[in-house]
Design a protein around this nucleic acid. Structure first.
Lengths: 230, 230
DNA sequence: GTCAACCTTCTTGTATACGAAACCCATGTC
DNA sequence: GACATGGGTTTCGTATACAAGAAGGTTGAC
């Protein structure tokens, strides 16, 4: 997936530091390491039974993806994204998805649209079963399909990257009352717009569909820490 | 600029590997290392009078930004982006700039629009002086201003990143006959649209303004390697 | 009692060392 | 003559060693 390389199309060898980076990323996203925590090279090295070198390489990868922050001579810390930043990322995600949707509407083949409908049907099943986790997962593949159908590998990669980055914040709002039903309805309209080749409509629908997540996130925040102003 | 961090707002210390990475990036973009070249750890270490460790760290940073490719157990190679990839990146750049333009139209202050006009005036001066290099530079600040005026730091960062990545390919077409005049005219219209708060128009103008670069790039390619089909 | 300076200790950043995998070229076989 | 196989060499990946900088506690002075 990640390597459509001109140099070594075979291989797909994952070095040790890649594996460790992926593991750490998962652990950060799932909350083993709370934001602000310092990641200790030595103890992680011991835990994974390697030296500090691969750990440090993993840190660099995480830093690049914005998950941790490297404070020179002080260590790496799990990044605490500010609410503003998170909202900004949601806004960008909404715009990127809009672009994907517009291009997908112009470029999708019949087979691809069928695949989209199938993914959406899977969402519906999960929704009707009331299985939020499963819906979450199927929802992911639905969106990934749209990224792919934009017909631009670079765009697809970037979309996936940001999608992944926002994962924990999207998950937070999954259990908000009524969100699943609303999301489901939006999906239907989106697929129809893409199938009909209505690029602008698909873009607008997707933008709203994602932007609402940013807004929900905002709601969650204000609930947690209500405004204390007069 | 790069660190609006919650953890260490001071510092802005650049580690040795950062400096080396920046240097190597510059050297790759300016063509000292041709695409496909293998970057030798040992000789670079010697050249910069450091050990292999910082060199390897710099390699990782370059790999993350897509400039080089890491082939496990074989070394890192200057990435030869395929024409398709480059076109894809131009397409994404066009879309991102469109988004920036739309948001800027909605959010720019009067002072910011003045700044935009000044940057554009600087472009015009360079254009009238026939100084393509200077135009290129001023053009860069013009676009960076638009990124900033979108009022979304994350978006701004991403836009700058891609802008930077496309630098060498944009430069290629600078000297195409008539391009400067056309670019100049487009700038005027873009500023007007943003000043008027016409988001959709600004987006469309910017999308075309950037997309045409991808097309010009395509023309250059077909000129270099004419189609040999019957 | 409080604050500042110093010293100890811990951690990071970089250098070096070493084992292992890949490449290259020569030799041998079919 | 072409291809496969094997040793030698190079280079990578990781471990370890060491030096420099930061954190924290203790002591001393005011």
């Amino acid at each position: 997936m990640s390597s459509h390389s001109a140099i070594h199309d075979s291989a797909e060898v994952r070095s040790r530091s890649d594996v460790i980076a992926a593991l750490l990323e998962e652990q950060i996203l799932t909350g083993r390491f709370a934001p602000g925590t310092r990641l200790d090279e030595a103890s992680l090295a011991e835990e994974h039974e390697v030296s500090r070198t691969p750990i440090r390489e993993a840190f660099q990868k995480l830093a690049q993806s914005g998950l941790v922050e490297h404070a020179p001579r002080r260590g790496v810390f799990v990044r605490q994204a500010t609410p503003v930043e998170i909202m900004e990322m949601f806004e960008v995600m909404a715009e990127i998805e809009a672009v994907c949707g517009r291009l997908a509407a112009l470029r999708s083949t019949e087979a691809q649209i069928d695949a989209l409908r199938r993914a959406n049907a899977a969402c519906r099943l999960a929704f009707e079963a009331g299985d939020a986790d499963r819906y979450y997962e199927q929802n992911g593949t639905f969106h990934h399909l749209i990224y792919a159908q934009a017909g631009n590998r670079y765009l697809e990669q970037e979309a996936r990257r940001l999608h992944r980055r926002l994962k924990p914040y999207r998950r937070m709002q999954l259990h908000l009352r009524g969100r699943l039903a609303q999301s489901m309805a939006e999906h239907e309209a989106i697929v129809d717009a893409i199938a009909a080749g209505e690029g602008t409509l698909a873009a607008d629908l997707l933008r709203d569909h994602v932007a609402v997540q940013g807004e929900k996130f905002h709601h969650l925040l204000t609930q947690l820490r209500p405004v204390t102003q007069a």
